Computed example of a mutant assay.
Amino acid sequence: MTPRGKFLRNTGFYIAAGITTLFVAVPILFALLGGFKDNQQLRENALGLPNPWNTQNYTDVLESDSFWQQVFNSIGIALVSTFIVVAAAAMVAFVFARYAFRGREFLFMLFATGMMFPFTVAVLPLFIILRTLGLLENPMGVILPQAAFGLPLTIIILRSFFRAIPGEIEEAATIDGAGPWRFFLTILLPMARPALATVSVLALVASWNNFLLPLVVLQDPNMWTLPIGVTQFSGQYSTDTARILAFVMLAMLPALIFYGFAERHLISGLTSGGTKG
């Protein structure tokens, strides 16, 4: 088939991809450019380029101590949450993927049903549990529930990848004297780097964007994460739309940069887990 024929055959796909790109890119571009305007420019020329370009909104946010405190809080919570969920899910997925025992599929389905359990339903009992354990006003009160709710999807992805690894590799490792724990740490995990990168990206971005749980657990402004900071900033400067757009854009930027760098690993991990074996 000629290149023109291939293009015509995929015209519908290209149109759908273009429309989707517009839906995603236009709001981000609007927020980015809006942060370089003042409120009068937003009223008179909301969709045009800034004229003149005003960097004051961004510099005011970057010079704010509270903004950087929220950034560090979000980074710390996201990194610890990601480490816990990936480490725990990898061990559970390894058992589900490489060992046969009675009730295995039932337990796996029990974990899988966790994806259908909305977090909002668990807010009240979770709040009571955290209060009983003394984890309110404590970052661990955010980290542990985030890790728990991230386990189902992470286990499903890793189990699929672990099952695709040939059993001959495990048999060879066993013959060489490697026990299950050594095989898991020194052979299986290095081979599963694409899948581990995938679930790490998903867990990190989910933690970074989490709003409801930190709002319930963290009342001290010094412990707030960026999603709470965006809400607080929007209320404080409700009439200064340009400054709010600048804050929102800077709050989104770390996650966008990380996702951009990790996109290749995310796609390769998902596709490898779905096509092997």
Rank of each mutant, 00 (worst) to 15 (best):
E137K: 05
A97S: 13
L196P: 00
A78E: 02
V95N: 07
G12V: 03
L204Y: 13
T132D: 13
E171W: 09
L133H: 03
G269D: 12
Q236M: 08
E168Q: 14
V61F: 07
M116W: 15
A195Y: 15
I19A: 15
V61A: 07
R243G: 04
M191F: 10
I19T: 13
L212H: 05
I165K: 00
I228Q: 14
V205E: 08
D220K: 06
F72V: 12
I19M: 12
T198E: 03
L107C: 12
F258P: 08
V217D: 05
N222K: 14
V92T: 14
A46E: 03
Q236T: 10
T186V: 07
T82A: 06
T271G: 00
F247E: 00
K276S: 12
R193A: 12
N51L: 08
A197Y: 07
A78L: 03
G273L: 05
Q232P: 00
T82Q: 06
P180M: 02
K6H: 13
F106S: 10
F247C: 00
E263S: 11
E171I: 05
G273D: 05
M223R: 05
L245K: 04
A164M: 03
V71H: 01
G114S: 05
F67I: 09
M140H: 09
L253V: 10
V230M: 12
A112P: 11
F261L: 09
G48I: 01
E263V: 04
A93Y: 09
V230G: 05
I77P: 09
W224Y: 15
G103C: 14
H265C: 04
A31V: 11
R182F: 11
F258W: 10
F261E: 02
L8W: 07
A31N: 08
V123R: 04
L151Y: 08
E44H: 15
V217W: 05
Q236F: 06
L253Y: 05
A87D: 07
T55R: 10
P194N: 03
R4F: 02
S272V: 00
Y14L: 10
F111T: 10
L49A: 13
V199D: 10
D60A: 15
V248A: 15
L32C: 10
I244W: 03
V92Q: 06
R98W: 09
A88N: 04
I128P: 09
A78I: 00
V201Y: 11
A197L: 13
R182M: 14
A31H: 02
Q232A: 14
P27M: 00
V142S: 07
G141F: 02
D38W: 04
P227W: 00
L253R: 09
T174L: 10
A46L: 13
T174I: 10
L270T: 00
I155V: 09
F96I: 07
L79A: 12
